[in-house]
């Protein structure tokens, strides 16, 4: 057990190292472009470029450059932006993190609950109209870009209908910290959560439905039926319970995809000042140090989250300890 945990933690560290090297190589070792000029930002003065070159050790070997960059990002944390002169990057990312965390954690809860509910309902009504409607909606959900769904939601809730009874409770776009006003925080997050969860509710609902239906062909289900259990008990206590394990494992992986992708777009559309919107704004002004920082911090968060999910699985499922 301890060996398995240590092994997983070691793996996490190796992956983090690998990601930092890949990111570093992309930004610093892409041929035919001068990293100093890119870091210094658009139309930088020659002196600035020279200062950057010296500061980041760009005339020294690659591994020294890598070391210096990681030191600036994670140890001294004194990397500054050139596009927004003097802006301290690491503290800015840290200040934006709570908004992103509220967004993804709320959406994750919604998506698991919604996905499980959808999957069980669809499986229970297999082939009949509730199943068909749910699967139709989930097929649509998968086909829509998340930021477009967000825009459509805004179009409904923020435009003409905003002043009617239906959506007058929705605050203007933006983020209010939980510590400042919990009620407003919740109301401003409802639609971002729903938007972000929409895609995954469909995806997980479909997967769980297929899983349950496949489980129905297993011997232990026949046994459960043969000993006279009600259909509901077989569905909820036996089939769902066994079909849900792969969903939980997938959750760990998708959570990372969510943080690194859909959350960025959702934050942009709903004007939530999180790490994703920070990345978006940095992209607009080509603020390289900021992009590198958000990419690395977000990826590390994803890797740690994946490791935590795996460790939880180790605790829950003894079979995985042997691997």
């Amino acid at each position: 057990m301890i060996a398995a945990i240590l092994k997983r933690l070691l793996r996490m560290v190796v992956v983090m190292f690998g990601i930092s090297v890949i990111t570093f190589l992309i930004f610093f070792a892409t041929p035919a472009s001068d990293p100093a000029a890119r870091i210094a930002g658009r139309n930088a003065a020659q002196e600035t470029i020279e200062a950057v070159r010296k500061d980041f050790g760009l005339d020294r070997p690659l591994y020294v450059q890598y070391g210096l960059m990681m030191e600036k990002l994670f140890i001294t944390r004194d990397l500054t932006s050139f596009a927004n002169r003097g802006q301290q990057i690491v503290p800015t990312v840290m200040a934006a993190a709570p908004a992103t965390l509220s967004l993804v954690s709320g959406a994750a809860i919604l998506w698991m609950l919604g996905g499980i509910l959808t999957g069980i309902t669809a499986a229970a009504f297999r082939g009949r109209w509730p199943d068909k409607i749910l699967m139709g909606i989930s097929m649509m959900a998968v086909a829509m870009p998340v930021f477009w769904v967000g825009e459509m939601v805004n179009l409904v809730t923020q435009n003409r209908l905003h002043d009617t009874w239906a959506f007058s409770w929705v605050p203007a776009l933006g983020y209010t910290p939980f510590s400042q006003d919990p009620g407003l925080w919740f109301r401003s997050m409802v639609f971002p959560w729903l938007t972000l969860a929409f895609l995954y509710i469909g995806l997980y609902g479909r997967m769980l439905r297929t899983g349950i239906i496949e489980t129905y062909q297993e011997d232990f289900i026949r046994t459960a039926r043969a000993k006279g259990l009600t259909g509901r008990k077989v569905l909820l206590k036996h089939a769902t319970r066994s079909a849900i394990i792969p969903i939980v494992i997938m959750f760990g992986m998708d959570f990372g995809v969510l943080v690194g992708g859909a959350a960025v777009l959702t934050e942009v559309v709903f004007g939530i000042n999180g790490v994703g919107r920070l990345t978006y704004q940095a992209l607009k002004v080509l603020d390289l140090p900021m992009i590198m920082a958000t990419v690395l911090y977000a990826s590390f968060f994803v890797v740690v989250a994946n490791a935590v999910v795996d460790l939880l699985c180790l605790l829950i499922d003894p079979r995985m300890r042997r691997a």
Binding site: V15, G18, I19, I22, T23, I26, F27, T30, S33, R38, G256, V257, V259, G260, G261, V264, T279, L283, L286, L288, I291, M292, V295, A298, S299, V302, V303, N306
Partner: peptide
Amino acid sequence: AFPVYLLAISLSIVM
């Protein structure tokens, strides 16, 4: 393990 969009963003910005 590298989030797809972040990888794509990193690649795009330099290319």
